[in-house]
Amino acid sequence: MVFAWGRGDYGQLGLGDDAGRDFPTCIQSLSDKSIVHVSGNDFHTAFLTGEGDLFMTGNNDSGQLGVRSRESQLSSMRVSSLDIYRISHVACGQAHTVAVTDMGAVVSWGASEFGQLGHKDAIDVVDVIQPRIVKGTRDLHFVRVACGAAHTLALTGEDTEFCMLNLL
């Protein structure tokens, strides 16, 4: 079972409302899921199941939830655009999300203003609303990702780090 508490004004707790909680509260909408990993940032949260499905909740102003609209979500919803992939790891940045597929490719979406998504062709694009494979990552076999406010780090199976940051 997954529990959440703290600030919830954007639905980032996934409890179905925008209220904060001072104590651990069970996320009922995920009670029938086998959650194996959770990642969160200020305003959005990602939940990864053992089956490789990704659920997200919270603020979506930059498309960081990976759904077709920019509407924020108070309850977790499955990122259906990732149905063709089995996700093995996920990380939330300030307004972006990055995931790793079981085949080692990196998928990213959300705010792109600093190049944190790793999409060379999206540097001039403010937001990437739908998850996209980062070109060139399929052959490197990544296993983990970590996000900061406006940057992303990715680790390959050979312990080689790559930083996706555009220095302007």
Rank of each mutant, 00 (worst) to 15 (best):
95 A>V: 03
142 F>N: 02
55 F>S: 07
151 H>L: 11
91 A>N: 04
161 E>V: 12
15 L>H: 03
97 T>F: 00
51 E>L: 12
24 P>G: 05
5 W>S: 09
154 A>M: 12
103 M>N: 12
51 E>W: 00
107 V>I: 15
69 S>T: 15
110 G>M: 01
106 V>G: 02
34 S>M: 09
87 I>A: 01
80 S>K: 10
49 T>F: 05
149 A>K: 10
96 H>W: 07
124 D>K: 11
43 F>K: 11
85 Y>F: 15
94 Q>T: 08
124 D>I: 06
137 T>E: 03
79 V>G: 11
142 F>E: 07
125 V>G: 00
112 S>D: 02
37 H>D: 12
75 S>C: 10
132 R>N: 10
4 A>H: 08
23 F>A: 12
101 T>V: 02
165 L>H: 11
114 F>M: 14
36 V>E: 03
5 W>M: 11
25 T>R: 13
70 R>C: 02
68 R>H: 10
74 L>Q: 12
21 R>F: 01
59 N>W: 14
17 D>G: 04
156 T>Q: 09
8 G>M: 09
89 H>V: 01
97 T>E: 07
18 D>K: 10
154 A>R: 01
41 N>M: 09
5 W>F: 15
155 L>M: 11
153 L>D: 00
63 G>S: 01
48 L>M: 13
5 W>Q: 06
126 V>E: 14
158 E>W: 04
144 R>G: 00
68 R>F: 11
73 Q>S: 08
97 T>C: 08
105 A>M: 10
23 F>C: 13
78 R>I: 13
21 R>W: 05
37 H>W: 08
71 E>F: 05
75 S>Y: 06
6 G>W: 04
102 D>T: 14
117 L>D: 09
59 N>I: 00
105 A>R: 09
108 S>Y: 07
18 D>R: 09
131 P>W: 06
86 R>I: 09
82 L>K: 03
